[in-house]
Design a protein around this nucleic acid. Structure first.
Length: 994
RNA sequence: GCCCGGGUGGUGAAAUCGGUAGACACGCAGGACUUAAAAUCCUGUGGCCAUUGCGGCUGUGCGGGUUCAAGUCCCGCCCCGGGUACCA
């Protein structure tokens, strides 16, 4: 009987669906295990072979855990709100819901073909009202809570309101932050109007509305979060991003900075991701130091606060620098410097983020004012410069040119004094960044090590009252508003008393038009209104501003960002259809954390940080018992594609020609070939380059991607197919070693050169798999040709899960051969089913149990590639022994079932089993079968391998040595030299030192 | 620049505690079967030398070191991939 994978797969897919084989319940009789894949965005292009890599791995693991007796939750769903569908809607008018629905159906079809064990009844889709009702509900929980720094957790906003009613707010309170929190008494609070109270509460809510500098992307018509920007451009589309002040919703994630750092120590994630999160949070310990402004024009006291991590260098301060955006700038600029400062500010504004990052110029301007050094009493000039960022620390620095590279460059340019304060001569190779050395020119600090000087100075500034210790973070509160249609509406209304507000309006504290009020939970979900125009509302307004109804109700017109829905989806899988809660307490307490989370490393800071934040808030509010969402995280590597490129001549190219091609003749070394007319462009076979004259080679540098299907396994391009695809190339010439293809004819080379091949060869290159590179391989095609089991095994066989590797179609024959070989242990072409009930021999049992042991080890280490090898070895060995025994094969197929669910199910049934193999128990390996009686010892003389010999493991060192020294080759190398030392490790090695 | 990964045959890779480097596959070469092809099977396959056999030398990015023994540990460097960047 033939191995017909298509038939087998169709058959079992149906049976499994009918029996609801993968249905999962909260079965308390079994230990639980939660395996999760990162939430896919259903793109219209469907899946390519790179996408399912992680899904296959998690599926194998989930199935393995099930065989091991666990109740496994392994769900799938879609992160279905998103920009591509909305962009498509803007272009075509097709509603994003329709586009998304189609894409999801396509995904499901592709995923089902691969044979994943998802319980589709638990599917979660973020754009469905049944789901986003709870995203909105979650938003309200955040809105109705504040972060209490005394208890160090989020709690109900009611406790804060009570506090204000009883005590008001004063600056001795731990929560107090001068910039954000106004001072008032309990009596004040009692008479504040509603909107004023709300305005104050916005300073504390976990989600709040404020006017902040945001990343505005004009092309997308929307605000972007920091992690959605790469190199100063939008991650999606690569459009320019500028800074703009806008009214926005933000998440108060900064309150969790320390707990987000601490939690990293309790989870099993890769060092690289943990490190990225630590860097993103960017905790640094330092101090705020006050410098009084000693300006002629200032009446009263004006203080510039600087943040520094290096208080030890305070005596090295020779000037201060403010961020150009600082509000102090206008206050301290002297009349005679006004022109220079204003000119500089204009320059700074003209610079985009991209320009700033690409060329770092030393620029700045003097304000004309001086500040008083708080310790020495000296005057230090105050500058502004773009290298100081408004958003970090206090937006002002004390410059120590002796110990900071940027300060030094600035000082050199503006000829400011450089005061050496640290002697690093005793530390060889220490750089300016290293916090080592002995203090000099620093008064009472002189002679101290940097470390001691820092703590001594911290004490001193606090005693003097000129500063205080301060921990600073790079982490910003996260922007939570998007000017888009295809996202969750906010459950927020504005009570408009004044004029409708513009998002770009300057902050006006008396403007009460912008005071938000939360909808009651009973009104959820607040569904997205149907609109016909998906374009932005203009002037920074969202598409929802186009809906008259929506605007009339004074609903928030922004929508939530992508991460709103994807930050908590793993909780919804636990109880996806619950209409009364985001998930029941029983389900949450049963499933708890995700035990194993698989996905790409591109979500290192975005999704993975927000999910941790949401989890911690829900934990604080007593919804969850755990405070970290993902116990173990594994990042699968990317599967790259092999692109096929053709090289062409840049002489007459649109990129600019400087050598006009005048002749119809192409020259080879020692030969030539003439075409009847001039070609529109000349392409060169990759193997023809070396037979061209040197002078023309240098122009052949450009490469163009061609559809990979046009290239045969030997790298030869089908020129006709290519021209049919790119009709504008019909007059192009294709130069091979043997001659030239031109307009369907072949013109032979006049004098034959070496290997005058007529093959036109492409150049292969490894790149990301993408539509635009024409190198996409669709899993559907692979499955049609080789079957899903073969596809699954090959994906795993390619290499370690976490490593990125190119997709090479050729190797798949290996796993295809393996499955056929396995099949032939069961079926003979002529004789048919040939499994016997004979007793297994010790040799056969050893093969089986060696395999079982290996698989168990590999599974725990997620080493799927070596598992596949182990199966191959076992099947090879059993084939060698012609073993078709029930006792062996029945257990072997169970072990293989997670990898090849279809084939093993078929064989399992053939073996006479009536229940599904996927409900079986993983066979326990028995160490007794693995005991070896002898070992093939490698014998070394002076550490070099000279012979191997099979010896009983019962022998001791002396007996082994006696046997070994009789070996001819060993004798030869020992000659008559005296034996100095013998190293003998039983079952490992014997090494004789002479 | 800084922080994480990584570097082993023609290719993907394996080597789990420092103990026979290259398992398992692909590819390639030769052979069997076949009218032929495909499929299948057998043999060989790191490099160099020897090949009549035993074998010998060399080899895990480079240079050192520790050790009876190093792909694995230590020191210094080079290259590739990812992240990040005026963060005070």
């Amino acid at each position: 009987m033939e191995y017909n994978f298509t038939e087998i797969e169709e058959k079992w897919k149906k049976v499994w669906a009918e029996k609801q084989l993968y249905k999962v319940t909260e079965d308390t009789s079994k230990p639980k295990y939660y395996v999760l894949d990162m939430f896919p965005y259903p793109s219209g292009a469907g899946l390519h072979v790179g996408h399912p890599l992680g899904y296959v791995a998690s599926d194998i693991y989930a199935r393995y855990k099930r065989l091991k007796g666990y109740n496994v939750l392994h769900p799938m769903g879609y992160d279905a709100f998103g920009l591509p569908a909305e962009q498509y809607a803007i272009e075509t008018g097709t509603h994003p819901a329709i586009t998304t629905e189609k894409a999801m159906a396509r995904y499901k079809e592709q995923l089902d073909k691969i044979g994943f064990c998802y319980d589709w009844d638990r599917k979660v889709v973020t754009c469905e009202p049944g789901y986003y009702k709870w995203t909105q509900w979650l938003f309200l929980q955040l809105y109705k809570s504040w972060y209490n720094r005394e208890t160090n957790k989020a709690e109900s906003i009611e406790t804060l309101v009570k506090r204000f009613a009883a005590f008001g707010c004063d600056n001795t309170w731990i929560q107090f932050d001068e910039e954000a929190h106004p001072v008032f008494t309990a009596a004040d609070w009692s008479i504040f109007p509603e909107h004023k109270k709300e305005l104050i509460l916005q300073n504390y809510r976990m989600v709040y509305r404020s006017s902040t500098e945001v990343n505005w992307c004009e092309a997308l018509g929307s605000v972007l979060a920091n992690d959605e920007i790469k190199d100063g451009k939008s991650e999606r589309g690569g459009y320019p991003v500028t800074k703009k002040k806008m009214r926005q919703w933000s998440l108060r994630i900064t309150e969790y900075a320390d707990r987000l750092l601490e939690g990293l120590n309790r989870i099993e994630w890769s060092d690289s991701i943990k490190e990225q999160q630590r860097n993103w949070i960017g905790r640094s310990e330092g101090a705020i130091v006050d410098f009084k402004v000693n300006a002629p024009l200032v009446n009263g006291e004006l203080v510039i606060q600087v943040f520094t991590t290096r208080v030890d260098t305070l005596f090295g301060v020779s000037f201060l620098v403010l961020a150009p955006e600082s509000e102090l700038v206008s206050l301290i600029t002297t009349d005679d410097q006004k022109a220079i400062i204003s000119e500089y500010l204009t320059y700074v504004k003209s610079r985009t983020d991209v320009e700033r990052q690409q060329e770092k110029r030393v620029t700045g301007a003097f304000t004309g004012s001086y500040a008083v050094h708080p310790v020495t009493g000296n005057d230090v000039p105050v500058y502004i410069a773009e290298y100081v960022l408004a958003g970090y620390g206090t937006g002002a620095i004390m410059a120590v040119p002796a110990d900071d590279e940027r300060d030094r460059k600035f000082a050199e340019k503006f000829q400011l004094p450089i005061i050496e304060v640290i002697d690093k001569s005793m530390y060889e190779g220490a750089t300016i960044e290293d916090k080592v050395g002995k203090m000099i020119n620093s008064d009472f600090l002189d002679g101290m090590e940097v470390k001691d000087a820092i703590s001594a100075m911290l004490d001193r500034i606090e005693t003097l009252g000129i500063g205080k210790r301060k921990v600073n973070y790079k982490l910003r509160d996260a922007s939570f508003s998007r000017q888009r249609y295809w996202g969750e509406p906010f459950p927020i209304k504005y009570k408009v008393f004044g004029v409708p507000d513009s998002p770009f309006a300057d902050e006006n504290p008396d403007d009460i038009a912008d005071i938000p009020f939360a909808l009651d939970e009973s009104l959820l979900p607040l569904e997205l209104p149907a609109v016909s125009n998906f374009k932005a509302g203009g002037d920074g307004r969202s598409p929802l501003a186009n809906s008259a109804d929506w605007v009339a109700n004074n609903y928030e017109t922004d929508t939530m960002p992508g991460y709103a829905g994807s930050s908590w989806y793993f909780l919804r899988y636990m109880d996806p259809n619950n209409a009364h809660a985001f998930a029941s307490k029983e389900a949450l307490d049963y499933w708890q954390q995700v035990d194993l989370y698989l996905g790409g490393s591109e979500h290192a800071v975005g999704h993975l940080l927000y999910s941790r934040f949401f989890t911690k808030v829900l934990h604080d509010l007593d919804f969850l018992k755990f405070d970290e969402p993902f116990k173990k995280l594994v990042n699968q590597g990317m599967i790259t594609g092999v692109s096929q490129k053709i090289l062409y001549d840049a002489h007459n190219d649109e990129l600019g020609s400087h050598v006009e091609r005048t002749s119809n003749t192409i020259f080879y070394e020692g030969s030539s070939c003439t075409l009847p007319e001039k070609a529109s462009r000349i392409y060169y076979s990759a193997d023809a380059i070396d037979c061209l004259p040197t002078y023309s080679r240098e122009f052949i540098k450009l490469a163009k991607n061609v559809q990979i299907d046009f290239v045969n396994p030997n790298g030869v391009l089908d020129i006709e197919q290519y021209i049919n695809w790119r009709i504008e190339e019909e007059n192009a010439a294709f130069v091979c070693r043997g001659g030239i293809y031109f307009k369907g004819n072949f013109y032979e080379n006049l004098n034959p050169i070496e290997n005058p091949s007529r093959d036109f060869k492409t150049k292969a290159e490894v790149e990301k798999m993408s539509k635009s590179k024409y190198n996409v391989v669709n899993p559907d095609d692979i499955i049609a040709e080789y079957g899903a089991d073969c596809f699954r095994m090959y994906e795993m066989f390619l290499g370690p899960l976490e490593q990125s590797k190119p997709w090479d179609q050729k190797g798949i024959n290996g796993t295809a051969g393996f499955l056929r070989k396995l099949w032939r242990l069961f079926y003979d072409d002529k004789a048919g089913f040939k499994v016997t009930t004979d007793d297994a021999t010790p040799a056969e049992l050893k093969i089986l149990h060696k395999l079982l042991k290996k698989i168990e080890y590999d599974m725990e280490h997620l080493s799927f590639n070596t598992s596949v090898s182990a199966f191959m070895i076992a099947i090879n060995e059993l084939t060698e022994l012609k073993c078709s025994k029930h006792a062996i094969l029945n257990e072997l197929v169970i072990a293989l079932a997670p990898f090849a669910p279809f084939t093993t199910e078929e064989l399992w049934a053939a073996l006479g089993n009536t229940e599904s193999i996927h409900l079986a128990s993983f066979p326990q390996f028995n160490e007794a079968y693995l005991v070896e009686s002898s070992f093939n010892y490698p014998v070394s003389v002076n550490g070099k391998l000279r012979a191997t010999v099979e010896l009983s493991l019962s022998l001791g060192q002396d007996e082994v040595l006696a046997q070994v020294t009789e070996l001819e080759n060993v004798k030869k190398w020992m000659e008559d030299k005296a034996v100095k030392k013998v190293i003998f490790v039983k079952g490992k090695i014997i090494n004789i030192v002479v």
